[in-house]
């Protein structure tokens, strides 16, 4: 799993640049086209777009923030030696969990929490949590045993080893997990509308229902821009937050 993520990240800087360029191009197209088709959309839906985008951002930030907040400690816990016996089994369950379509998870969360903002957050949280836990676990497990042994042999305490050796050396894989997870999150967030969670899904799905192309685009374009922005921010974070010695992106 993490191999795949790492593989995808090999061409990261190029991807980031591409995303950036596309973003600028879209922005430029938007300004140029204000007079035309897109301009019409903006004139008609600007209020909705602004309101729903805010809602959408809250959905994404809250659910992925909570997922990171829970996923990080959970991944760390699973990677501890005393959890070794259970961690494989739990991870298997998690893997099966990821194969469940997000829509199904959202539907299930209705049965738990009814409809509205809360079940939407919950559903997105579950979908985001799994890749984070898995990568945190994987990253920590992949820290070479001899590094931990050297640390222990020099008289570091387990907590110190976790903080100064394991986490920094797992950071790249962990970050890759977070990046994937947030990408999944942003892409899935429009579905929140279906269970009453609001967000840009409202324009998209209503647009589909009414066969209104302009309305549909009024939702799709901001969602696309948001996912680019999120990925770009995280890529920058990955570049600058991970120490140079363990960051394959930096020379």
């Amino acid at each position: 799993m993490s191999r795949g993520i790492l593989g995808a990240d090999a061409s990261d800087s190029m991807k980031t640049r591409a995303v950036f360029v596309i973003g600028i191009a879209l922005g430029a197209a938007l300004t140029v086209a204000t007079q035309g088709y897109l301009g019409d959309i903006w004139r008609i839906y600007s209020e909705d777009i602004i309101y729903l985008t805010k809602q959408h951002i809250v959905l994404v930030l809250v659910s992925s923030g909570l997922a990171i907040l829970v996923g990080l400690p959970a991944g760390i816990l699973l990677s501890r030696d005393f959890m070794r016996r259970y961690s494989e089994t739990l991870l298997q369950v998690f893997n099966i969990g990821t194969t469940i379509p997000t829509l199904a998870i959202l539907a299930l969360s209705i049965t738990l929490l009814g409809i509205g903002f809360k079940p939407a957050i919950f559903g997105l949280w579950v979908a985001t949590l799994l890749p984070i836990v898995r990568n945190v676990f994987q990253g920590l497990r992949e820290v070479p045993a001899h590094l931990k042994e050297a640390a222990q042999g020099m008289g570091m305490t387990p907590l110190h080893i976790l903080r100064s050796v394991e986490l920094p050396n797992a950071l790249y894989v962990m970050f890759a997990g977070i990046r994937t997870a947030v990408a999944v999150n942003v892409g899935t967030a429009p579905l929140a509308f279906l269970i009453g969670g609001g967000g840009l899904g409202e324009l998209i799905f209503t647009g589909i229902d009414l066969n209104d192309m302009q309305m549909l685009l009024a939702g799709v374009i901001p969602v696309g821009l948001l996912s680019m922005l999120a990925d770009y921010t995280l890529a920058k974070g990955q570049f600058w937050l991970i120490p140079r010695g363990v960051n394959p992106l930096r020379p």
Binding site: H146, E149, A150, A151, S164, V165, N169, L171, P243, V246
Partner: peptide, 11 residues
């Protein structure tokens, strides 16, 4: 140790 074990994240 044989693998040297310098921590890559530290100077």
């Amino acid at each position: 140790i044989q693998q040297i074990g310098l921590f890559p994240n530290m100077t």
